[in-house]
Simulated assay, not measured.
Amino acid sequence: MRWNVLSAAALMATATIHARAAPASIAGRGDNGFDDLYGFSDALAEYYSLVSRHIYNTNRDSMPVCDLSKAELPSQASGLPAVPAGQNLVYVAIGRGTQNYTCSESSSSVGPSPIGALATLFDASCLAANFPDLLTTTIKVVLNYQGPNLPSTLPPANVAMLGHHYFSNNTTPVFAFDSAPPGRGGMAVTRKIKQMTAPAGSVPGQGNKGFGAVPWLYLQTIAGTTNNYMSVYRVNTMGGSPPTNCKGISGVFTIQYAAAYFIFSEG
């Protein structure tokens, strides 16, 4: 990540702060006032505040570079297996999409069954390497975006699309890096090895309302994988969990979620 990215974000923050001081005739419109007009949120305010702090603390003569060796899994991920020896971080991706479920019948005695997920992946590697707090806050912001159509460059951090996440069947997560730079694409076909409950305080869903954050995961690659991808960690999850039962629900339904994915390869 370069200085000009942070500077642009700071300018956006300044514009937002100025807009916050809108005339009473606009600001006093309640739900139809500034917040709706500009998409302002507590998460976005937190993001811009962090950007401003990083700009203030950054040495202009020694600007940050994208060194993935500096990117680390969150400390709370200690409940998952450690990264296997010999594996190196290739990407940190923000995933934004839906966790998908089905209810066999509308009944409080039946629980939803998971049937995979569908998400767009964005390359947040440099953000994770230099500003992990901004990575987390960006995930909070993008959770509240309305899908399914997302821009190829995801605001507010302006990270580029990396690929897509989907399931080849109900139990096989796939990560297709179809928007990666030439020679850095490929596909990770995985299976779940271990999961842990999302840490206390995780964002439960859009608007900070919902049924909870989906678990953190450790996935290993299986046959069909290319480019030596070996492991995937899903962390920093927000939203995605279903209700505890199927009362009032029948058939397939989706729950919005966002998360960070740390992707490792061999060698």
Score class of each variant (00 low, 15 high):
Trp3Phe: 14
Leu6Pro: 11
Ala8Gly: 10
Met12Val: 13
Ala13Leu: 00
Thr14Cys: 01
Thr16His: 08
Ile17Arg: 14
Ala19Met: 04
Ala19Val: 12
Ala24Asp: 11
Ser25Val: 14
Ala27Gly: 14
Asp31Trp: 02
Asn32Cys: 07
Leu37Gly: 06
Tyr38Thr: 15
Asp42Val: 14
Tyr47Trp: 14
Ser52His: 03
Arg53Cys: 00
Arg53Pro: 00
His54Lys: 11
His54Glu: 14
Ile55Leu: 15
Tyr56Gly: 03
Thr58Trp: 00
Asp61Val: 02
Ser62Glu: 02
Ser69Phe: 00
Ala71Leu: 07
Glu72Gln: 13
Ser75Ile: 13
Gln76Asn: 10
Leu80Ser: 04
Leu80Ile: 07
Val83Asn: 04
Gln87Arg: 12
Val90His: 00
Val90Ser: 11
Ile94Asp: 00
Asn100Glu: 13
Ser104Arg: 10
Ser106Val: 05
Ser107His: 05
Ser107Glu: 07
Ser108Gly: 15
Val110Phe: 02
Pro112Val: 11
Ser113Asn: 10
Ala117Glu: 01
Asp123Val: 09
Asp123Pro: 01
Ser125Gln: 04
Cys126Ala: 14
Ala128His: 07
Ala129Pro: 03
Leu134His: 09
Leu135Gln: 05
Leu143Ser: 09
Asn144Ile: 11
Tyr145Gly: 06
Gln146Tyr: 02
Gly147Trp: 07
Ser152Leu: 10
Thr153Trp: 01
Pro155His: 09
Ala160Asp: 08
Leu162Ser: 07
Ser168Gly: 08
Ser179Gln: 10
Ala180Trp: 05
Pro181Tyr: 02
Pro182Thr: 15
Gly183Trp: 00
Arg184Tyr: 05
Gly185Cys: 05
Met187Tyr: 04
Gln195Lys: 12
Pro199Asn: 11
Gly201Arg: 10
Gln206Glu: 13
Gln206Asn: 04
Gly207Pro: 02
Tyr218Ile: 06
Ile222Cys: 05
Ala223Gly: 05
Ser231Thr: 15
Val232Leu: 03
Arg234His: 06
Val235Ile: 14
Asn236Pro: 00
Pro242Tyr: 03
Thr244Ser: 13
Val252Ala: 12
Thr254Cys: 00
Thr254His: 08
Gln256Leu: 00
Phe264Lys: 04
Glu266Trp: 01
Glu266Gln: 14
